[in-house]
Design a protein around this nucleic acid. Structure first.
Length: 570
RNA sequence: GGCCCCUUGGUCAAGAGGUUAAGACGCGACCCUCUCAAGGUCGAAUCAUGGGUUCGAUUCCCGUAGGGGUCACCA
């Protein structure tokens, strides 16, 4: 008993020696960062915790959706904390980039770091490098309790131990008898600290990997794992905490109730539980989300930052995928019954859906770009010409200045272009799913870029010669000549088509598709072929929306001009 | 390799001890049609494997295989 008292006293001495300037205690912090009693029972407090590495992973986006849904559904809190304890990996400007990207998807947090120089909330600071004092208080506390100790081992020594362990098929790591500094006397520790030896701080685990612990994962249910027995590093040589320790201190004092993180964290959960227990804190509910995978040859693997462009959220923004479509897609892989709900609630979006943790799938799913594209198409199809224009303007201002300028020359016209087969249409055209494709798709509406295309790629009208041997250059010329004569810009759609047919018929085209299909040999081509000639002459494309509408939009002068120009090139 | 997670069509997946095993994307065919897109109709395609339990298992249990994750003074 006397010895214990003595040991205890020495622990305090050691703690004081290491943190002489720390005079706050864990209890002080409990008062400073009280429980969030203003929240109603069952309110969920979640957080997104990015590292400022200049890269936002698609998986983070997917988790951000879970955070936001859980918090808003329960009138809880969703905050953002920056985990910048690895200063080597830090990239300037990351915070702005990250918050901007979240904003694009309407997933910005409501507390914590909300912008480059913007922190909101009373549980801050929300940037780990600014919370050093808190970790020091907590680390000191553990040393006082004999649950942490200074470790003087060099990386080389640890490496050697590891090699020996691996060679002998022993569980590698710093624990038990292999934890050299755990086993030196406290007097020696004190002595060596006094002598100014360099050290880091390790947790003193009392666990054993022979014992099992279990916890209930919010999505997966009961999970059983070996207890932690590793004396993990809690404070690094730069004085900052490791992830494990920062997570425990922060999520306790920020009063996080649910930690939603990727499946890759599952194996280290026992460490966190061990640490929570040592600190005397109640651990949060862990929710481990499945990983987003990508097909690689015949197998699949998690999205790789280096190999897969889709692993970066910025990829979707740069390509101009509509945020709603991307979120819709992620929701379909997040909650298995979402698609069912959506099919019954077509006009609602995922924020109206009741998200259930237990409906979250637990197997990693392959990123299905065709499906994502399809959902984006649906979202674009819901927009008016005006909305599309607005989105394209925002996108092009950032990524395609020339196109932005062109659109701005005549906003009314631009809006009509995007409103084609969209505004007041019975069947909405579904062909765009990302903004970067818009310029190519609608090029022929804008002379500046259309003419450039003609210069670069030339006229494609001759291609019909190979496809339809019965159609000769003479036929094309004649078709255009006659149509130029017949064209009347005041025609309504029916009159326009009647006129097309009239001209076509006079040249030997069949104006009835059924009849043509039955007896193609009787004609030089069909009305479809004739339309193709007109279409190509006006747009230099084989496929476009309805030509009548296009001609209406372009106006008489451009139409005649293009017909003539093409005619001269045949 | 140790530990952990996962396994229904090509992909995302619903599902219950007995079902004709939903739906969506993709794919194919046809219809519509001035081309394309869309839309409509139809179609091909799934319970990894062995052993139990059971009258009956894709569903429950155990093993096997396969896939994935993780084993830092990175998060």
């Amino acid at each position: 008993m006397e010895m214990d008292k003595e040991y205890e006293r020495k622990c305090y001495e050691l703690a004081y020696l290491i943190f002489p300037d720390v005079d706050e205690t864990v209890d002080d912090l409990e008062v400073k960062y009280p429980e969030r009693n203003e929240l109603k029972v069952g309110a969920i407090v979640t957080r997104i915790a990015p590292s400022p590495t200049g890269f936002m992973h698609t998986g983070s986006l997917y988790q951000a959706m879970v955070h936001k849904k859980l918090a808003t559904q329960t009138d809880g809190v969703y905050f953002l904390r920056v985990e910048d304890t690895d200063q080597k990996r830090e990239v300037a400007g990351s915070i702005k980039m990250y918050t901007d990207e979240l904003k694009y998807f309407d997933l910005l947090a409501t507390e914590g770091v909300l912008g480059e120089d913007k922190q909101v909330g009373s549980y801050g600071p929300y940037i780990q490098s600014q919370r050093k004092d808190i970790y020091r208080v907590c680390a000191k506390h553990l040393i006082e309790k004999g649950l942490a100790y200074p470790c003087f081992c060099t990386p080389e020594m640890i490496d050697k131990t590891r090699q020996m362990q691996e060679a002998n098929k022993i569980v590698p790591g710093y624990y038990g008898v292999y934890a050299k500094c755990r086993n030196i006397s406290i007097d020696e520790s004190i002595e060596r600290v006094k002598n100014g030896e360099k050290f880091i701080i390790r947790f003193r685990s009392n666990g054993s990997h022979l014992r099992k612990i279990s916890f209930v994962d919010g999505a997966r249910g009961k999970i059983e794992m070996a207890e932690n027995d590793q004396d993990v590093v809690i404070i690094k040589s730069d004085g900052l905490p490791t992830y494990h320790f920062a997570h425990v201190c922060d999520d306790h004092f920020m009063r996080t109730t649910h930690v939603v993180r990727g499946e890759e964290w599952l194996p280290s959960t026992p460490i966190h539980l061990d640490l929570f227990n040592a600190m005397g804190f109640t651990p949060p509910v862990y929710v481990h989300t499945p990983l987003i995978m990508i097909k690689d040859g015949n197998s699949k693997r998690k999205l790789s930052k280096r190999k897969d462009k889709e692993s970066a959220v910025s990829f979707f923004i740069k390509a101009g995928y509509p945020a709603e479509g991307v979120c819709e897609y992620l929701m379909t892989i997040l909650n298995s019954d979402y698609e069912m709900w959506k099919s019954k609630n077509k006009e609602k979006n995922y924020m109206d859906f009741e998200f259930k943790l237990n409906k979250m799938s637990s197997a990693g799913s392959l990123l299905d770009m065709p499906k994502l594209n399809d959902l984006c198409k649906e979202e674009v199809a819901k927009m008016s010409g005006k909305e599309v224009l607005d989105k394209v303007l925002v996108w092009s201002k950032q990524y395609s200045q020339d196109f932005y300028d062109i659109l701005n020359k005549d906003l009314e016209y631009s809006q009509k272009v995007f409103g084609l087969e969209r505004d007041n249409a019975t069947k909405i055209r579904k062909d765009i799913y990302k903004w970067e494709d818009v310029e190519e798709t609608f090029k022929y509406f804008f002379d500046e870029i259309y003419n450039k295309e003609l210069e670069e790629k030339g006229y494609i009208i001759d291609s019909i010669l190979e496809e339809k041997p019965t159609i000769t250059k003479e036929v094309i010329k004649k078709s255009l000549e006659e149509y130029i004569k017949a064209y009347n810009e005041n025609d309504n759609k029916d009159e326009w088509f009647a006129r097309m047919k009239e001209v076509a018929q006079s040249l030997g085209f069949c104006t009835n598709m059924k009849e043509y299909k039955a007896n193609p040999e009787n004609y030089i081509g069909s009305i479809a072929d004739f339309s193709s000639i007109v279409r190509m002459a006006i747009t230099n494309r084989k496929n476009t929306p309805d030509i009548y509408s296009i001609m209406q939009l372009l106006g008489k002068d451009k139409v005649i001009n293009r017909l003539n120009t093409t005619l001269s090139k045949v």
